[in-house]
Amino acid sequence: MPEQQTGRERLRQALTRPVSRGQVTAAVLLAIVGFASVVQVQSQDRDANFAGARQQDLIQLLDSLNLASERAENEIADLEEARSSLRNDADSSNAALQEAREQAAALSILAGTVPAVGPGIVAEVRAPAGRVGIDQLLNGLEELRDAGAEAIEINNTVRVVAQTSLTDGEAGVVVDGQQLSPPYTIEAVGEPNTLAQALDFTGGFIDEVEGEAIGGQVRVEQREAVEISTVREPNEPEYAEPTEQE
């Protein structure tokens, strides 16, 4: 073999040359390397991370895990606290909302902005034309209110509320600017017995209307359900403002 052989030539020769001792040795050692690397790679794949780890590393790992779990537990406690406080908040705001809704319902019935239904009376007032005026009607309404009427309606057209005005008109009374003509039907929601009695006492509404001066007729009917369907537009107070209450 000439001395000035290049590396390439030697490699080519080695690939084509028949078996020599050096080649067998190299083959054996290379087989060992191949085997060992494959085994190592596979064991690395198989048992995640910890099997080959050193004791020190494992202890460090354990410490950091402990710290992490401690931190996580603290966080859980914080979050639970936040959750319970939020829940309390939600409960109290729900209660406030409920209360506000009930108040709004009560107020809107009083203000006449929603239809209402409930037990009550229907009073039908018949009288010769022009005899029953605002004096009598006002008395009757006041007595009904005294007896705790919660919603009042006249002739299915006018809802009687705090701001309602009554004036005498040509063909009857004018309630809230609406001309009403007899017969008048007064519907009131409240305790039926009390309402009926409020109209019917000596010197009261019925007494007055049916008296000789007017000669009318009042028919009071107590009902399980009186339906009051007329509503009023709520008017924004222009001058009055609520004062702050402590």
């Binding site: 690939l15 080649q23 060992a36 690397s37 596979q42």
Partner: peptide, 16 residues
């Protein structure tokens, strides 16, 4: 040649 075969053999044995 034999050396390369040896390497291959080792890998195959390890895989098997």
């Amino acid at each position: 040649m034999i050396a390369a075969l040896g390497l291959l053999l080792g890998i195959v044995v390890g895989l098997l």
